[in-house]
Amino acid sequence: MKISQMLLASVAVLAIGMPAAAIADTSDKRIALSNNYAGNSWRQAMLTSWELVTGEAVSVGVVAAADAFTTAENQATEQAAQIQNLILQGYDAIVLNAASPTALNGAVREACDAGVIVVSFDGIVTEPCAWRIAVEFREMGRVQVEYLAGRIPEGGNLLEIRGLAGVFVDDEISAGIHQGVAEFSQFQIVGSVHGDWAQDVAQRAVAGVLPSLPQIDAVVTQGGDGYGAAQAIAAAGRDMPIIIMGNRQDEIAWWKEQKDANGYETMSVSIAPGVSTLAFWVAQQILDGEDVPQDLVVPFLTITQDTLEEALETTPEGGVANVEYSLDDAKAVIAAAK
């Protein structure tokens, strides 16, 4: 061991010995965000959260830099090139929202071989050397039915609004909903339409299928479609069922309106765009030498009757309810996965 190494080692020992060390070992590390798409409100909120949290982290010296890069077009080949450029720019870690779960594996492998930490979230990659912060879409579907079982113990008819046909997320959430229905067999799905996660599409689809349906007791959704469903049902003059919401501002605003008017009760569940900041802290923890399991799970952001007002206040018009994660949140998620 050279003298300099010995010095370093003793400094490290000292640093561990001091519990309240303000500056982490990662103060000279640089983290990059590689993002494949910025064209909707969720992604915009994701980028804003990233800036907010990492800006603060950089200014207090937790890390040296945390730059966000978005590819101009949502294409896997372009993002693979972007990742390779980030390796060349000498980043210590890359936080990744991937355009494809598999097509970036080559570039991710290159990053790992170059000693770069790769943490994927939301759009995760399958390359084993990367970390994954995955969304449990199935569970997101299942908890909706579970909530309904609490509200309507005798069960009833469900209308399912699905997302964009052929997309993995749609299959997963729907599978979760069907699993929930199997578990709570007092419910049956009497109709299913594709709302494409958009209010206008959902409204048209629900309006089209309503005349052929018996009484609907509840509507299970995937987010971005609750408000449209409510509009269609109101227009048809039917009794308002329990519509599960998806954290969009227009959905929460409508819910609040109904609550004030007639005590309407429901719940809202989705993934907070601030999950990018969770990925940031996870990357920071890995750089810090923390032993982090390769597969982590994102907590849902659930809005209940009690947190409704608060959520409505903090959600920008046209946006999505959001939460930024802290270092402690990341530590809790890591601990939960161990």
């Binding site: 294409q75 080949t77 494809s100 598999t102 097509a103 970036l104």
Partner: peptide, 17 residues
């Protein structure tokens, strides 16, 4: 060659080409 680099494929992998 592209698959040799990426290790896997998807149906939209090279649309930009």
């Amino acid at each position: 060659v592209l698959v040799g680099l990426t290790t896997a494929a998807d149906a939209n992998i090279a649309l930009r080409y």
